[in-house]
Simulated assay, not measured.
Amino acid sequence: MAIVKSVRGFTPEIGDNTFLAETAVVIGDVVIGKDCSIWYGAVLRGDVNSIRLGDRVNVQDGAVIHTLYEKSVSILGDDVSVGHNAVIHGAKIENGALIGMGAIVLDHAVVGEGAIVAAGALVLGGTQVEPGSIYAGVPAKFVKKVDPEQSKEINQKIASNYLIYSGWYKAEK
């Protein structure tokens, strides 16, 4: 069973039909929407400030979401995918965005709707990733715009697939 722990008077709120892998950790001031999946080794640590996830968000294996004490919060919109071993630290990720495997998004950055942060990218604090764009590199820079329909199709397909995958695990219980 996942570790779901209260701290500083905050107890995580988990939405309906959300899958928490047995080794997922959710601590403190965390609110997770419905139809989400938090995978193996993922950590949502709302001990020093708030973490909010919309609906149909998937936080893949080994990813970490955290904040800065009294200075930043982490907010993820609907249909967001956070790739394996990614780190989101006090940033805002808007609806339908994709954070690639091993990417790092730092405090006060905003990843716009439908944007893609490439695998291994480092989005520095305060960076504004344009909606519907791809950012890559260290530090992450604009690469190109993505056709809005193509971006929506790719990003929502991944989010939908993770909802299907989580169903496999629920069926095994």
Rank of each mutant, 00 (worst) to 15 (best):
V129T: 01
I154R: 04
L163G: 15
S81T: 15
R45L: 03
I164V: 14
W39H: 05
G90I: 06
L68M: 12
A119E: 09
I134W: 00
A171P: 02
A159H: 04
N155E: 03
K173S: 15
T67M: 14
G132V: 04
V87N: 04
S151V: 00
W168R: 11
N95S: 13
A97R: 02
D35E: 14
D47C: 03
E94Y: 07
L68P: 03
D107G: 06
T23A: 09
G33S: 01
Y69Q: 13
V143Y: 02
K141L: 05
T127S: 08
W39K: 06
G54Q: 11
V123N: 04
H89Q: 08
I164C: 04
G33M: 07
V110T: 15
F142A: 02
A97M: 08
V146P: 00
V59N: 04
S151M: 00
I154K: 06
L122V: 15
L124I: 12
G83M: 14
V25R: 11
T11P: 13
W39L: 05
V110D: 08
S72W: 00
R45N: 09
H89D: 09
L68R: 10
R8P: 05
E113L: 04
T11V: 14
D47L: 05
V25C: 09
L98F: 12
E94R: 14
Y162L: 05
A136H: 04
E13K: 14
S72T: 10
D79S: 11
A86C: 06
G46L: 03
Q60P: 06
F19T: 03
A159F: 07
V82L: 06
Q128M: 10
G62M: 13
I134F: 01
D16S: 15
G28Q: 10
P139K: 07
G9L: 13
A24V: 11
Q60Y: 08
L20C: 04
G132L: 07
E130A: 13
D78W: 03
I164M: 08
D107M: 05
H84D: 00
A115N: 13
G41I: 02
T127A: 10
I75L: 12
S160A: 14
K144C: 04
E130T: 10
S81I: 11
G112Y: 00
V43M: 10
C36A: 06
V143C: 11
G126Q: 11
